[in-house]
Structure formats: structure tokens, C-alpha cells
Design a protein around this nucleic acid. Sequence first.
DNA 1: AGAATATATTAACACTTGTTCATATATAAT
DNA 2: ATTATATATGAACAAGTGTTAATATATTCT
Lengths: 207, 207
Amino acid sequence: MPENRDSNQILSTKEKIMNASMKLFSELGYKNASVRKIAVAVGIRESALYNHFKNKEDIFLCVASEIFNSPFNNDDSPALTSTQLSNPKSYLQKFVTEYKLVTFDKTQESLFRILMIELLQNKALREGFLNEFHNKNIKVLSGIFFTLMQNGVVRSSDPILMAHEFIAPLFYLRLHVTLLRIDNLSTSNLSSQFEKHVDFFWESIKV
Amino acid sequence: MPENRDSNQILSTKEKIMNASMKLFSELGYKNASVRKIAVAVGIRESALYNHFKNKEDIFLCVASEIFNSPFNNDDSPALTSTQLSNPKSYLQKFVTEYKLVTFDKTQESLFRILMIELLQNKALREGFLNEFHNKNIKVLSGIFFTLMQNGVVRSSDPILMAHEFIAPLFYLRLHVTLLRIDNLSTSNLSSQFEKHVDFFWESIKV
DNA sequence: AGAATATATTAACACTTGTTCATATATAAT
DNA sequence: ATTATATATGAACAAGTGTTAATATATTCT
């Protein structure tokens, strides 16, 4: 069963299809990324694709399943330790640094493009967006803000609202960066905005 | 020349095409909204469309041209008068009320969907988004924040950054609302968030 | 009224789409 | 070496795409 690649370097055909599909879906969207274009990019005939995937939708779902598997999303927002409680701003900075990293990562950028392109057309992606992107972040952040409020290190407010106010500018920045990069425009102005956001936000909530 | 409608009530075929196209583009995107589907929605054969528009792209451009003609975008953010300077929070509230109105307006929602669906595929829409949606708002708001800072009614900071922090949660909310509405989910929770945002933001910047 | 114009229809076109089938060629197992 | 399995090819399919041409039917103008 030669399912996986033989060596570490040489990619299996299935992996090649995945990579080519990710690229094409992120550039053209689902409908415009035709089976033939994918096959050409891989270097095989379109009929050969069907030895590895059931159909086109199967390819897409396989690629799309990676969207919400970001390392950031999984588990890089640990609970607030006592040391972090003594310096909560650095926690927010750490969060934003991670967010920024994901924003500028090439693979994550492709997946984000696919997400944004198909977000309004694909119900599963919408649900993933709301659950994995939004709700999960809101839950983690609001929990932290709640603790910080209880300990009196940030001003009293609705923790969920505060989480919203913290995450929204980050998402907006990420979308902005993504749009500029499509046209190969400079994002250097935006790059520093991530850190500025933390500074501004911390000034907004500290007691 | 029977170009315009005869009465005020009866729509011309061209207007019917526009309405049907706006609906279909906003639900299916450019590629999936086929000329035949549009024709069926209007109630004519597809070839008759070509008496009113050069081709499919012409229809789309005609619809898309309305996206950045929102009443909000045009001219509803007047300069800061002396009375508004004495109560700057109410100005922000007025701004957000207008933004909220646009968010929940049916026509504006359809146009916003088209924008979001084609944003990553259509360069003209990207430029429109950055110039008309983003930059224009940032310019107006940062000018206001600058004045408010000079008069010492809000805390000192970068006005552009502050404008960014103000507008981003509004956009994020609008996107959120749009996504929920596609699936006919309740947006009552989000509705009140617009006002909460102003309250939180004002607490963040007042001296 | 008839002529001119605007708008509709029917039919066809060249092309692209996703998918399937029979068949050929590698690769692995016995 | 022979068999079995995995993967490739080429051809074809039915369906859908945007667009055009010839023609018919309204509508408006004189």
C-alpha cells in the first residue's frame, strides 16, 4: 500500500493534488478552479485525479479541512498563569504575535483566501468560521478578561464585548493584509499595526 | 426613447434585469449566476438581455457600481461642528447608527454580499473596498479624532490608529450579521453590539 | 394608416464543465 | 516470472456556459 510518500522529499501524487488544488482554489475559487486546471498543475490527466479522490468536492473538502487546523487555533492560547496575570499585557502581545505570524504565513494565507472566497457560498465554511475562528477566540479571550477583571488589573466591563473589541481589529488587519498581497502591494504599513493595536487596547482597558 | 419606466410603479426591463441580477449575484456569485438564470428570473429569454446590456460583465459592472454609492458613504459624515465638539460621543453614536442602518438594509445587504463574494477575485472591487469603504472612513474619523485630541476631549494617541480601532469592530459586526442572515439565523444578539461598541470605545478614549 | 424602432423569440454556435469507461502501463506481492 | 494491484491514459458523455444571428412581435413616430 504505497499510500504515503516513499521518501520524505518526494511527494505522493495525492499530496501534489492537494498542493495544486490549494493554490488554485485560493487564487480562483471553487468554481473557477476546474478539474482540468488542477490536473495540468499536477502534471497528469484529469481522469487520473479520480484514482485519488472521489470527485471535485472531495478534493475541496480535503483542502478545506486544513483551514481550521491552524497551530494557532489548536492550542496556543494557554490558560492564564499567575506570572501572566502579573503581566497581562505581555499575554495579549503573545496572542497578537501568534495572530500576526499566521497572517503572514504562506500556507495559512492560502487557506484564509479560500475561506474568504467561499465564506458566503459554503455553509460548512461559515459554520467553521463562526465556531473555530470566532467563538473559540472569543471564549478564550473573554475568559482571560474575566479573570483580569476579577483581579482588578483591567477595568470592569463585559468580558465578551472586550474580547470582541480585541479580536475585530486583528481580523480586519488580516483581511486588509490579504487583499493587499493579492495585488502584490506593500503591507509594511500594516505590519506594525498589530503591535500598535495591543498598545492602544491595553491603554483602553488597564485600570 | 422609452429608456426610463413609463410610470413610477412599473419597472423597465432594464431595471428588472438589474434587480434580478443583484439578487442572483448576491446569492450565487458572479460565475454561478448564469445568464440563463438571470433571464428566467426576469421572465425573458437570455438573448433578450443583450438588447439592454453588452454582455454579462456589463450587467455585473452596472450592479457593482451601486456598491459604493451608499447614502452613508456619500455624505452622511459631516464635519465636526462646535455643538458636536461639546458632545463628541453623540457624534460617534450617530455614525454607528448610520452604519447599523446600512448593515440591516436589504438592498445594502445584497450589495455587501456581492462585495464580499467577489472581493478576492475582482481587483476593481478590492480597490473600491480599500478606497471607498476603508480609506474614506479612516480619513473622516481620524480627522475628527485629531480635532478632539487637540481640544483635549479624548486622550492623546495616533488618530489613524484610533479610527482603525473604531471602524474594525463595526465591519466585523457587519460581516457577522451578514453571515448569520444567509442561514436565517437570529441576529438579535448582535444588534445591540453596535451601541455597546460605542460605549466601550468612548470609555477607551475619553480623558 | 404605414414606417421605423425597440424588444422579444427561436435556434444554433463553440467552448468548458465534471465524470465515467475501457484500456494501457507501471509497481508490488507471490 | 506471473499474478495482482495501483495508477496512468485517451476518448467520450451529457450538461451547462456566454454569445450571436435571423426572425418575429410589439411599440412609437410621422
